[in-house]
Amino acid sequence: SRYQRVDEALPPNWEARIDSHGRIFYVDHVNRTTTWQRPTAPPAP
């Protein structure tokens, strides 16, 4: 859903941030990219 819980676990090396307008975006520290779409953790084997 559009309103996912912010405290749900993100994949490793990802961080949720809030911009100056109060919107949540996500930072990938490995690839040094950002996205508005919440990343999903790969399925557990």
Results as ranks from 00 to 15, higher is better:
residue 1 S to G: 14
residue 2 R to P: 12
residue 3 Y to M: 14
residue 2 R to V: 07
residue 25 F to E: 06
residue 24 I to M: 10
residue 24 I to W: 05
residue 11 P to S: 02
residue 36 W to R: 07
residue 24 I to V: 06
residue 1 S to Y: 15
residue 16 A to M: 04
residue 26 Y to W: 02
residue 20 S to D: 15
residue 14 W to C: 02
residue 7 D to S: 07
residue 21 H to S: 11
residue 23 R to I: 15
residue 25 F to H: 09
residue 40 T to L: 10
residue 31 N to R: 10
residue 25 F to W: 03
residue 21 H to V: 07
residue 44 A to C: 11
residue 36 W to G: 07
residue 35 T to N: 11
residue 24 I to L: 07
residue 33 T to C: 15
residue 21 H to Y: 05
residue 35 T to R: 02
residue 25 F to P: 02
residue 44 A to K: 13
residue 11 P to W: 01
residue 36 W to T: 08
residue 16 A to S: 09
residue 42 P to S: 10
residue 25 F to L: 05
residue 26 Y to C: 00
residue 15 E to K: 03
residue 9 A to I: 09
residue 28 D to H: 10
residue 44 A to Q: 14
residue 17 R to H: 11
residue 28 D to Y: 01
residue 32 R to G: 12
residue 4 Q to W: 07
residue 45 P to M: 08
residue 15 E to T: 06
residue 42 P to V: 11
residue 39 P to W: 00
residue 21 H to P: 00
residue 3 Y to E: 05
residue 9 A to E: 13
residue 33 T to P: 00
residue 27 V to A: 06
residue 10 L to A: 00
residue 2 R to K: 15
residue 8 E to F: 08
residue 4 Q to A: 08
residue 6 V to C: 02
residue 2 R to L: 05
residue 43 P to Q: 09
residue 17 R to Q: 11
residue 25 F to M: 05
residue 41 A to I: 10
residue 32 R to P: 03
residue 22 G to A: 03
residue 2 R to A: 09
residue 6 V to F: 15
residue 44 A to W: 04
residue 7 D to Y: 09
residue 12 P to N: 10
residue 18 I to P: 05
residue 43 P to H: 09
residue 26 Y to P: 01
residue 28 D to K: 01
residue 12 P to E: 15
residue 14 W to Q: 03
residue 35 T to C: 06
residue 31 N to F: 03
residue 20 S to W: 03
residue 25 F to D: 01
residue 26 Y to G: 02
residue 39 P to G: 01
residue 17 R to P: 01
residue 39 P to H: 01
residue 3 Y to Q: 12
residue 42 P to E: 11
residue 3 Y to P: 13
residue 19 D to G: 05
residue 37 Q to R: 10
residue 35 T to L: 01
residue 3 Y to S: 13
residue 8 E to Q: 12
residue 8 E to W: 04
residue 42 P to C: 05
residue 17 R to M: 14
residue 2 R to M: 12
residue 45 P to Q: 14
residue 38 R to C: 05
residue 17 R to C: 06
residue 16 A to G: 06
residue 38 R to S: 04
residue 16 A to W: 02
residue 5 R to A: 14
residue 5 R to H: 13
residue 10 L to M: 11
residue 34 T to P: 01
residue 44 A to N: 09
residue 27 V to W: 04
residue 41 A to Y: 11
residue 25 F to Q: 05
